[in-house]
Simulated scan of single mutants.
Amino acid sequence: MNKPIRILHVLGALNRGGAETMIMNIYRNIDRSKIQFDFMIHTNEKCDYDDEIIKLGGKIYSVPRYVGKNHFKYKHAWDTFFSSHTEHKIVHGHMRSTAAIYLEIAKKHGLVTIAHSHSTASRGNKIEQLVKSVMQFRIRYRADYLFACSNEAGKWLFGKKAISKDNYKIIKNAIDVEKYVFNEVKRSEIRTVLDIEDKFVVGHVGSFTYPKNHKFLIEVFYQIQMQNKNAVLLLVGDGELRSQIENQINKLRIKDKVILTGVVPNVNDYMQAMDVFVFPSLWEGLPVTVIEAQATGLHCVISDTITDEVKITQLVKALLIDATPDSWANQILTYTKPVRENTKEYICNAGYDIKTTTKWLEDFYISEL
């Protein structure tokens, strides 16, 4: 019996972020007798998906986090890894900041290289962003293939000319659509557990990081609850800025109206409990959570910074990111009596069904050997 092809995915960590969740959705659905995923990460800390990956037959490796002064140590770690791990045939890089480094080394070792863009902006201060821009510019020339979750994400990382080339591919942030089809029983169950049976539930799913714009979201919700005393805010996720957001909530004296669930494995169930989904990100690639929200029939109020490619149903309303919190609140309050729609057909027809995406990627990997 032939052994499965081993693909090395490169990430910062293996927690429940957008890119990581998308990869795990594919990993769960791929034919693992043909394709097996391994992961190279930049941390030694235990991550959310570690146990599941091991259970599915994957292996997890780590290299030191790149900090500039360890440039040669970082390159050596990668060179040593590829020399001793000849089982990998393809390296699929999702961590863009150092992709030009590790993809170049991978090519020297004879691997097929893929760079995958999941966003449209860099984090960090101006100096850090400048350094990243210089490093990331070379990716378009180092990778054999350029993948992106949207054309906006592709143009941002690889340049406008790149998206017209044959080696450029759109890999949509697909989901397991069946899990998100509206379920009244599950909605009632979650709302009972959270003690919000009769509430107007404003929902959000996202890591507590600067791009997700939680500070503005709290300001918007403050205006909402001033007009609708029955409103509650359901925040699913965790992250580095959580304590700051909790302080803001306390200062506004709305702690009793905000539910913070932390990271949960069943985001789809919590979306059932929401009445409207709000996503005021400062920047995104193509946010899978907005696809998920549409799949469960939720009206979505999002920022105009997010690509129009995310609008696959009539449920999405984009507002100016620099609009006032009360103008956002007024729009959200128009959905206090929502009617959930079955959007399964729309999601699948738009190419966001995980089984279709997984089969395409499986065939792609095999064709490259």
Rank of each mutant, 00 (worst) to 15 (best):
S33V: 09
S33W: 08
S33K: 14
Q36F: 10
I41E: 11
H42N: 06
H42W: 03
N44A: 04
N44D: 13
K46A: 05
C47S: 14
C47G: 07
Y49D: 02
D50Y: 10
D50G: 05
I53N: 10
I54H: 11
K55S: 15
K59Q: 13
I60W: 08
I60S: 11
Y61P: 02
V63F: 12
V63H: 13
R65D: 05
V67S: 13
K69G: 14
N70A: 07
K73I: 11
Y74C: 05
D79S: 15
T80V: 13
F81I: 09
F81V: 06
F82G: 01
S84V: 06
S84Q: 11
S84Y: 04
H88L: 04
K89S: 13
I90E: 05
I90G: 08
V91M: 05
M95I: 00
M95F: 09
R96M: 14
A99S: 10
A99T: 05
A99Q: 04
A100F: 15
I101E: 14
L103E: 08
E104I: 00
A106N: 03
K107Q: 07
K108T: 07
H109D: 03
H109I: 08
H109C: 06
V112L: 08
V112N: 06
T113N: 03
I114N: 06
I114Q: 03
A115W: 04
H118F: 04
H118Y: 01
T120M: 00
S122M: 10
R123N: 15
G124I: 11
N125F: 06
I127V: 15
E128R: 13
V131A: 14
V131G: 11
V131W: 12
K132F: 14
K132V: 09
V134C: 12
F137W: 15
I139T: 08
R140P: 08
R140G: 08
Y141P: 03
L146E: 04
C149I: 08
S150C: 07
S150I: 00
S150N: 05
S150V: 03
N151Y: 10
N151L: 02
N151T: 00
E152G: 08
E152M: 06
A153D: 03
A153N: 02
G154A: 07
L157A: 05
L157H: 01
K161R: 09
S164N: 13
S164R: 02
K165R: 15
K165F: 04
D166T: 08
D166V: 09
N167F: 10
N167G: 07
Y168P: 04
Y168D: 00
Y168V: 07
K169P: 00
K169I: 11
K169E: 08
I170V: 12
